[in-house]
């Protein structure tokens, strides 16, 4: 099939960017979306034009590197999958496809479609861990964890840190990402001692990084390749409220 691509090009962080249109002829429906871009890049390089910079690594939906806004939807039209898992059979001949970077004040564009998502790491630094130093752990089976709790913790822990939630949210809020971690750790007995502090500190950092607040739009969940449940956000709010009332800091 033949497609028309409208791709955001921006040479560097501070330079202005614009949308450039490229034709993509003879696209096979079995190609992945990123392979389609590989082919485009090869063609551009052969023409002496700089290839489009975009992030990717595992190409199987787990590393969270890939990050494209495709026709206004992060990771494209397929629910529950990352851009690298999207195949061209989701499009039809003659389609126009808009490809833009994930946008948020907290995610500055580095080049073309590559953005800086290190704000997420700093949110984790603020408290997204269980403070246990190597070698001090009790036997793994010493503390039983109810299966339901373990399963729900795993649901939340599946987050790949891609930032699609932020990209999709009209407020550019990082609530789903933050909530996923707070929920994952908060559901486990091991995560209890730091639970309230964690919620306070991670939310504070989220704000420092200039992410927006949550209006409960639900766009984040719809865009999330791991379909992190919205209930995690409620969990975060609850922990935060409790922490504030009990004055835990």
């Amino acid at each position: 099939m033949n497609l028309t691509l409208h791709i955001w090009r921006q040479p560097s962080r501070d330079a202005p960017g614009r949308v450039v249109t490229y034709e993509a002829p003879d696209v096979s429906p079995d190609m992945s979306f990123l392979e389609m871009l590989d082919v485009l890049n090869d063609r551009l390089t052969n023409r002496g034009e700089e290839p489009v910079a975009f992030e990717h690594d595992c190409r199987e939906g787990i590393c969270g590197s890939c990050s494209l806004m495709i026709n206004g939807v992060p990771h494209g039209p397929r629910r529950g999958s990352a851009t690298c898992q999207l195949h061209m059979r989701s499009f039809t001949d003659g389609d126009h496809i808009w490809i833009e970077p994930f946008r948020a004040k907290a995610f500055p564009v580095i080049k073309d479609l590559v953005v800086d998502r290190s704000a997420f790491d700093r949110i984790i630094q603020a408290g997204g861990y269980i403070g246990v130093s190597t070698g001090s752990a009790p036997d793994a089976n010493a503390i039983p964890v109810p299966k339901e709790a373990a399963d729900r913790a795993m649901d939340a822990a599946a987050c790949i840190g891609c930032g699609a939630c932020v990209a999709a949210c009209p407020n550019a809020s990082a609530m789903l990402f933050t909530a996923a971690k707070v929920t994952h750790l908060g559901l486990l007995p091991q995560g209890q001692p730091e639970r309230l502090r964690r919620a306070l500190d991670m939310v504070t950092q989220m704000d420092v990084e200039h992410f927006g607040g949550c209006t409960n739009y639900g766009e984040c969940h719809a865009a999330c390749p791991k379909q992190i449940p919205l209930q995690t956000i409620a969990q975060l709010n609850r922990d935060y409220l409790k922490a504030a009332l009990l004055n835990r800091r």
Binding site: Y129, I130, V132, T134, G135, S136, A137, P138, D139, A140, N141, I143, P144, V145, P146, K147, A150, D151, A153, M154, A157, H184, L185, L188, Q190, G191
Partner: peptide, 22 residues
Amino acid sequence: LNIIDQCVAQGVPFAREYGGLL
């Protein structure tokens, strides 16, 4: 042996049985 202990303490949500054990 130590690895599993360490990882569980860090909050790695390993699969569990209904009894709560790994």
